[in-house]
């Protein structure tokens, strides 16, 4: 008993109290800032090094849905026009909002329809489906339940059965072998239901985009409610994205 109490004292107060204004490590790569300066004539170094074709030139823009938040473009730019800031508020309900240009100061907050906010505003249960995820996103989603992030305090939880869920969270690029299971799982969730994509793999396929082993039809056939970019997304990106989405 005394050991348990000692352990509890050691535990201290590790929780991130204010999830919307947390400080992440200096090097953490969140929302990129693009300097308001013209690119050097004919330079395509950032786009050339990007392994996932997230960058379009003239004008320079970065698609966070495709971006893996690696340091390559920042390193390649001779004029240092690209800089990844530690702003982790990058989840969005609209795919086009994930495209960052020199005018982007922040990603507009996700916002669900009134019906969804009324239904799920105070309690949201999610069923996660890993459809080819490498276990990176899965680890970060699991971290949401640890003592640092404790997502349960907001009434948002992962549940075991899709029948108990209000929506599904998809990680991974959706492999051929998981595509049917994903459909079955989604069908089992009662209406109204939401779909959340977590990670670059599920949003755009990551480096696996052109693999013949993928089957991404599900993404085209269904409306996606929330995009949480990252490789993997920081737990706080997920929490704040959902809190904004359900109007909290």
């Amino acid at each position: 008993m005394i050991d348990a109490i000692k352990l509890r004292i050691l535990q201290g107060d590790p929780i991130v109290h204010d999830v919307k204004n947390a400080h992440l490590p200096k090097l953490f790569r969140g929302l990129p800032a693009i300097a308001d300066k013209p690119c050097p004539e004919g330079c395509d170094k950032c786009a050339a090094v990007c392994p996932v074709q997230a960058i379009t030139l003239s004008p320079l823009s970065i698609d966070l849905g495709r971006c893996t938040f690696c340091p390559l473009c920042e390193e390649a730019c001779p004029e240092k026009l690209i800089h990844y800031t530690s702003n982790y508020h990058i989840a969005s309900d609209k795919r086009e909002n994930l495209i960052v240009t020199k005018d982007t100061k922040k990603i507009p907050h996700a916002h669900a329809a009134k019906k969804i906010r009324d239904y799920f505003g105070k309690s949201l249960k999610l069923r996660q489906v890993s459809a080819g995820g490498c276990n990176g996103c899965e680890l970060e989603l699991n971290a949401l339940n640890n003592v640092n992030f404790d997502m349960g305090r907001f009434g948002i939880e992962f549940v075991a059965s899709p029948r108990h869920a209000d929506g599904i969270v998809i990680t991974g690029p959706v492999t051929r072998n998981m595509s049917r299971a994903l459909e079955i799982c989604y069908e089992a969730v009662p209406n109204p239901k939401i779909i959340i994509l977590v990670g670059t793999c599920s949003i755009a396929g990551h480096v696996f985009e052109n693999s013949v082993q993928l089957q991404r039809q599900f993404m085209e056939e269904n409306k996606i409610d929330l995009y949480v970019p990252g490789c993997p997304p920081h737990p706080l990106t997920f929490i704040t994205g959902i809190l904004n989405f359900i109007g909290r």
Partner: peptide
């Protein structure tokens, strides 16, 4: 197993160094 098969090995020959 096999549900996670993304074809990683087959993608390496086509990949440049960053990829």
């Amino acid at each position: 197993l096999g549900y996670q098969h993304r074809g990683v090995e087959a993608l390496f020959p086509e990949a440049d160094s960053n990829r």
